[in-house]
Simulated assay, not measured.
Amino acid sequence: MKLTADYHIHSTYSKNNHGKSTIEEIVKTSVELGLKEIAITDHGPKHFLYGIKKNKIVEAKNKIEEMRKKYPQIKILFGVESNILSINGNTDLNDDLLSLCDIILCGYHSGVVFSTFNDLWNFHVMNFLGKFNKRIREKQIEKNTIAIIGALNKYNINILTHPGDKIPVDIDKIACIAEKRNTILEINNHHHHLNSEEIIIAAKYDVRFVINSDSHIKDSIGGFTNAIKAAQKSGLDLNRIINLA
């Protein structure tokens, strides 16, 4: 059992040394691992700590074009891990970025430039308070879920990254919309979400799953040990994982 593809890999184009390997280092390692397909998906530009700089996006795409010619034995996709910026589900995707991308990932992250102060307050302060108050937590689950569903409905998102990580959400409602929008749910090897309990809930719907390494350095590309354990524990039919052979 092995992965045939890894669609969530950060490169040195994620700023502040968040990604530690160059695109060519990533490609060479992936070829050595026998992967058939990879996606370079650095954080969207509104992640003020780690996002790809706007003036580097075209440069990164051109580098991938260069790697496609140099390493024809592997399919290389250019993408982005976009960030949810508002309770309404707005992200840092725009037409210029979308026109360059072969694949779109999206997830919730802290450290982003939220759309309004109210969004900052809701995501950061209220989710923090929800850790200590059941009523607040239940309300935040509802709000967080609305934000993610909003993003799924507004954009053609290929993969929803690590749902359930960083903020609590209603996986049942998210999986229901993911089925309708044909969005693949990620079992993230690094962040441990979806976990086995979440996979059981999501698997009730006709959704597909993907295992991604969420690699930030070439040595962890193709990692799937934690994710496959969660999938097996959940009883998921492994044929529903699109990149597992």
Rank of each mutant, 00 (worst) to 15 (best):
M1S: 08
M1H: 07
H10V: 01
H10N: 13
K20G: 15
K20M: 09
K20E: 14
E24P: 06
E25T: 06
I26M: 14
V27C: 04
S30N: 14
V31R: 07
E32T: 12
I38H: 03
K46D: 02
F48K: 15
Y50I: 00
K53D: 12
K54L: 15
N55I: 06
I57M: 10
I57L: 07
A60G: 12
K63M: 14
K69V: 14
I74K: 04
I74V: 11
K75R: 10
I76D: 03
L77A: 00
L77Q: 03
L77S: 08
I84V: 13
I84C: 04
N88R: 06
G89L: 11
N90I: 02
T91F: 12
L97D: 02
S99Q: 13
L100E: 00
C101F: 08
C106I: 07
V112I: 15
F114G: 02
F123I: 01
F123D: 01
F128A: 15
L129D: 05
F132S: 13
N133P: 06
R137Y: 06
N144C: 05
N144T: 09
I146F: 13
Y155M: 08
N158C: 09
I159R: 14
P163S: 01
G164Y: 04
I167W: 08
D170T: 04
I171T: 15
D172L: 11
D172V: 07
A175F: 02
C176R: 15
E179T: 11
K180T: 12
T183L: 06
E198C: 12
E198G: 07
I199N: 11
I199H: 01
I200S: 11
K204T: 04
R208I: 09
I211T: 00
S213A: 11
H216A: 10
I217L: 12
K218W: 00
G222F: 12
G223K: 10
F224T: 04
A230D: 11
G235D: 10
D237V: 14
N239P: 15
R240Y: 13
